[in-house]
């Protein structure tokens, strides 16, 4: 799994609430059998006009935000489908950190599996970062996962919480399946017990 440790880059503001997985990556692009190459279709319907040309008003198309690495978003980011194509597209675009007041559960979990750090902060702090992100190319934020700190372009520091296990997995790029397989004994013990308690399963 991809590691995440420190990141400094341009933050883009997307204050819209309830940005759903259909907005992040429309189903048209779910027909792939690969994980890569989805970045060009990230936010496809907002980002491109019907004729395929870029919508110049969309934030990621503005000159200042073409190299965005951090997204500051409205409430309930990533709601809707379980499609991991959403974080794949975000990652492929080059964004590895999303900050919001809240995330949908499945999307949140999918981020960690792909080296993306989703950060939940209270509204006041998201408001500060949203303003910072609105500065355009000057909005270079830093995110330090080890220290659990975000530093704004003005040098202000905001701390954030992250689940200890998920943090370790991101920092070390640990493979979940490999970790679980180390517990194979517990799993087979459970299966033996289950076979006698619930033989119909």
């Amino acid at each position: 799994m991809d590691k995440f440790n420190k990141l400094t880059g341009i933050a883009a503001p997307m204050p819209l609430v309830n940005i759903d997985t259909d907005m992040i990556i429309p189903k048209l692009f779910l027909k792939t059998i690969k994980r890569s190459g989805l970045g060009k279709n990230l936010f496809d319907e907002m980002r491109y006009n019907e004729d395929g040309s870029e919508n110049p008003d969309f934030v990621l198309n503005k000159p200042a935000y073409r190299e965005t690495a951090i997204l500051v978003a409205g409430d309930n980011f990533g709601c809707g489908s379980s499609r991991e194509h959403a974080p794949w597209a975000i990652k492929d675009f080059g964004i590895t950190c999303v900050i919001s007041t809240s995330f949908a559960d499945i999307f949140f979990s999918n981020c960690f599996k792909n080296g993306i750090l989703p950060i939940v902060l209270p509204q006041e702090q998201v408001d500060i970062l949203m303003k910072d992100a609105q500065k355009g190319a000057n909005a270079r934020m830093s995110v330090d996962l080890e220290a659990q700190e975000i530093t704004t372009s003005d040098g202000d520091v905001i701390n954030f919480n992250v689940d200890a296990f998920k943090k370790q997995c991101l920092l070390e790029g640990l493979d979940d399946i490999g970790l679980t397989m180390q517990k194979a004994d517990s799993i087979s013990k459970f299966e033996t017990m289950s076979a006698s308690d619930r033989p119909w399963v």
Binding site: R35, I106, N110, N114, D176, I177, L179, A184, I187
Partner: peptide
């Protein structure tokens, strides 16, 4: 019963378990 992402699909296929914290 709940939805999972593709990485978790692979995890369940390989181990028949899911890493979860309680809701």
């Amino acid at each position: 019963a709940h939805g999972i992402g593709t990485s978790e699909v692979e995890h369940v296929l390989a181990t028949q378990t899911l890493i979860q914290a309680k809701s």
